[in-house]
Write a protein that binds this DNA or RNA. Structure first.
Lengths: 212, 212
DNA sequence: TGGCTCATACCGACCAGTATGCATGTTTCC
DNA sequence: GGAAACATGCATACTGGTCGGTATGAGCCA
């Protein structure tokens, strides 16, 4: 035994330390935003000190980018593009995603908002490096949806005349707008109203059964 | 002469001073957000000093709320609800508003984003007083659109079976989502795509000419 | 022994807020 | 109507606290 990873030595586990910092930073940034996120809060929750943080990350800025790339990006894209990647009918899948989010949303999620949208609104006009990373993630998201819609057009589950790229952009915008409005109003009915609107829009993308 | 407002004495004009502070604070908050807005920047642009600021406003927090109530709220509601208030066909008016915004958007506006949305995303989960004011403004906005839609239903320009309140919420959410996504991507095509999507949605609210 | 991992203590900058004083208007009273 | 007494409007200088970042050194592993 012990030829590889000689049992998590508990002490002296740099990977675990880094992950702990990244995780608590993700939480802190999600609730307070990047600029208001205090390093002391992050370190207290992670159970380490400044020495550990600045050993693994060069600066708060770098930590924020790591949270964005390694945590937020994974979460958003997995949750959204995962189901779409292996679906034959993108419209059914999109409706299922909306429905799942609509029913599973907790009060805490309502208050905290979408982590990607939060960072985007806070940092885009202030920090160019953040903005470019955020724009890239939105780009992946939009391209993933567009790709799925095009596949639907090929197999006949999506109307052939819809602009896949434009529609994908519209979906992402409406989705984030809903999250943002719900965050401010703290009203679950906002989620309901917007979900209905989105589902109606999705239905309008199906091919008309008349024209076969 | 000089029986009333004895000629703007240039010196000693508290109303003008307050307005100057409010205006530069509006700009600074719009570009940097509330928490990153520096009082020194605001004062430099307004051409006054801290003494003047703290004479007119009790704190930075109070200044921020004044900007929200007296500046942001007026701007947003006037621009959006003004045209709707005196229109007989709300759908035509909504399309006109979208079209006007789409064509008049400047690169600076694209970068800065919607001032209401910016404050909402930044402050909602951090400051309850800000959040309640922001939610109230969104409420006015939504109610204004809903009222206009109901009037359209009465005069036959809007389908009778649409849920006015839910539709108004969906419109506001999509609108702010578009502004937010455009702010991050800095891509005018995002505005185009989402405008097309919204106009298509508006068209779907018209009564079908068949069923008279 | 030398390089990695991290704790402790400290620094300096930034920034909201305050204390103070002066100058300009406004009221009061002779 | 004029001057004293007061209130308003605002500038200057300073303070206190927060917080990101650093310097240093100690334990751990190969």
């Amino acid at each position: 035994m012990s030829q590889r990873t000689p049992a998590p030595t508990r002490t002296r586990d740099p990977k675990a330390t880094r992950d702990a910092i990244l995780q608590s930073a993700t939480r802190e940034i999600h609730t307070n935003g990047f600029r208001s996120a205090g390093l002391d809060s992050i370190l207290a929750e992670a159970g380490v000190t400044k020495g550990a943080l600045y050993h693994h990350f060069g600066s708060k800025h770098e930590l924020g980018l790591a949270v964005l790339e390694e945590s937020v990006r994974r979460t958003v894209l997995e949750r959204f593009l995962g189901p779409l990647a292996k679906s034959v009918n993108p419209i059914d899948t999109l409706i299922a995603i909306i429905d799942r989010l609509r029913t599973e949303v907790t009060p805490e999620m309502l208050v905290a908002g979408c982590p990607l949208n939060n960072l985007a609104q806070e940092m885009s006009s202030v920090d160019e490096e953040f903005r470019s990373h955020l724009a890239a993630i939105f780009g992946e998201w939009r391209r993933g949806i567009a790709k799925s819609l095009r596949r639907g057009q090929e197999n006949g589950t999506v109307r052939a005349d819809v602009d896949a790229d434009g529609t994908a952009t519209y979906i992402v915008a409406t989705f984030e707008g809903t999250a943002g409005l719900a965050k401010t109003t703290r009203d679950l009915e906002v989620i309901e109203d917007c979900s209905r609107g989105l589902v109606g829009f999705f239905e309008s993308l199906r091919p008309t059964p008349a024209a076969d």
